[in-house]
């Protein structure tokens, strides 16, 4: 997976652990942890991380000096200063040696993500952040939801979705996402799958069109609501909310969502394939 490789420089074991815990919930991979400036330079040379988080207080040099040494080796190094104190003089000194961003302890997961998005020049990284931190939260919700709602196990996957629109024959439920990040999720399935899904849910083979639409609508509400809750559990400082559903049924339905980064989540189960297409506006 397209993980963003990070090195943590901090003299406190507690601070390193807290930060590593934050990062492990997202798509960051902590490839190295350094407790002092000498170790930081050595590990940077060994691991070549994409991003460095830098503490100000180190036993053998301060964060500014350590940054100078790392950027002396790699002038392109992207370094975020994370310190207990953040004032104008520190920011000025930091900027002078090429620190890209300043965060104050304690740092929220969301601040780290936002900072990374800003620093990340590569589209691939933005997509990776959205996939690992947001799309996967919906994938887990889809798998858990199907087990709870109709009692079936499913095999799930997440893929990037690059087509300009979604084409659907069957039932699609659109639920808007507001807050952070803003976007929308669409749960959909083919007519045959809807029928099997509803039959399993209601325990009867005789199901009406209205029951089928309502079954998918209810499932979408539960699954997408749970996905948003999964995200809110990790990013506690910003809240994602879901709008009421809009349910479309018919054949040859096309749904376009211009300017979104979208992912297709698939759950293969005994009732058929159930999909969620989830899209996020990039940035805020």
């Amino acid at each position: 997976m397209e993980k963003v490789r990070v090195m943590i420089v901090d003299d406190s074991k507690i601070s390193r652990t807290i930060l590593a815990n934050h990062l492990s919930k997202t798509n960051f991979e902590v490839v190295a942890m350094a407790a002092n400036a000498a170790e930081a330079l050595k590990l940077y040379q060994e691991h070549n991380p994409e991003l460095v988080t830098m503490d100000m207080n180190l036993p053998d040099a301060d964060g500014i000096e350590c940054t100078k040494r790392i950027r002396g080796f790699d002038p392109e190094a992207k370094i975020i200063m994370i310190s207990a104190m953040k004032d104008a003089s520190l920011v000025a000194k930091g900027r002078a040696v090429g620190i890209s961003a300043f965060l104050q302890k304690p740092v929220s997961t969301n601040d780290i993500i936002d900072t990374l998005l800003l620093l990340s020049q590569q589209q691939a990284n933005k997509v990776a952040v959205l996939r690992e931190s947001y799309a996967k939260a919906f994938e887990r919700a889809l798998q858990q939801g199907l087990l709870n709602i109709i009692g079936v196990n499913s095999k799930t996957s997440v893929d990037s979705y690059d087509k300009r629109y979604l084409e659907i024959d069957g039932v699609a439920v659109i639920i808007g996402l507001t807050g952070y990040p803003v976007g929308r999720a669409i749960m959909y399935m083919s007519r045959d799958t809807v029928k099997a899904f509803t039959s399993t849910m209601l325990g009867t083979d005789e199901v009406t069109d209205e029951e089928m639409n309502e079954a998918v609508e209810e499932a979408a509400n539960i699954v997408i609501g749970r996905g948003a809750s999964n995200i809110n559990d990790v990013f506690k400082d910003k809240e994602m909310r879901i709008t009421p559903p809009g349910t479309i049924s018919g054949s040859g339905i096309k749904i376009a969502s211009p300017k979104l980064t979208t992912f297709k989540l698939t759950a293969s189960s005994q009732v058929g394939d159930i999909f969620i297409n989830v899209g996020f506006a990039e940035g805020e």
């Binding site: 808007g176 996402l177 803003v182 018919g250 749904i255």
Partner: peptide
């Protein structure tokens, strides 16, 4: 209020239930 992103649905005579 907060607003979601728009979904553009194309397809004459398809039915959309919104409430």
């Amino acid at each position: 209020v907060d607003i979601s992103t728009p979904s553009v649905t194309v397809g004459k005579d398809t039915k959309i239930k919104i409430g």
